[in-house]
């Protein structure tokens, strides 16, 4: 699965590079803002202590989004839907994870049923939602 090519496209595709560009501006920006608020806080503005903590949190949030964006595998998503439908092909490594005969048990709870319906609907429309272009 994790061949050299796959890893290269994960980190070096055009969209990945764009994501790197955005995150490499976002994180220093947040840290500069945090530093700025910290200096204001130290010069007497008590309110700025709160903002000085908040900006690093924004930086971390950006990193989480960036990481999710990079590791969002469209093939895995399609596979997930097909497995949810229990109609499509098994994933290549299905012998290892050994999925049950059906993902839709007769006594599935309503919330899970609604979610499976939703995934089924997305799959039926042939429009897999993904953060990466396929």
């Amino acid at each position: 699965m994790t061949t050299g090519t796959a890893r290269r496209s994960l980190w070096l595709s055009r969209r990945a590079l764009l994501a790197h560009l955005v995150i490499s501006a976002w994180v220093p920006g947040c840290l500069v803002a945090a530093w700025w608020q910290a200096t204001i806080a130290l010069s007497g503005n008590a309110l700025s202590y709160l903002y000085a903590v908040e900006w690093p949190a924004f930086a971390i949030f950006g990193v989480v989004v960036w990481w999710n964006f990079l590791h969002d595998d469209p093939a895995e998503r399609v596979n997930f839907r097909l497995r949810a439908l229990d109609r499509g092909p098994r994933p290549p490594d299905s012998s290892r994870t050994a999925p049950p005969a059906s993902y839709r048990s007769r006594d599935e709870d309503p919330a899970l049923g609604a979610y499976n319906d939703y995934l089924e609907q997305l799959s039926r429309r042939q429009r897999p939602k993904t953060w990466r272009r396929q």
């Binding site: 993902y103 919330a111 899970l112 939703y118």
Partner: peptide, 13 residues
């Protein structure tokens, strides 16, 4: 249930 817990519901989210 073999579906990961975090996929069970969107309602709460």
């Amino acid at each position: 249930m073999s579906v990961p817990k975090r996929f069970r519901s969107m309602d709460g989210a």
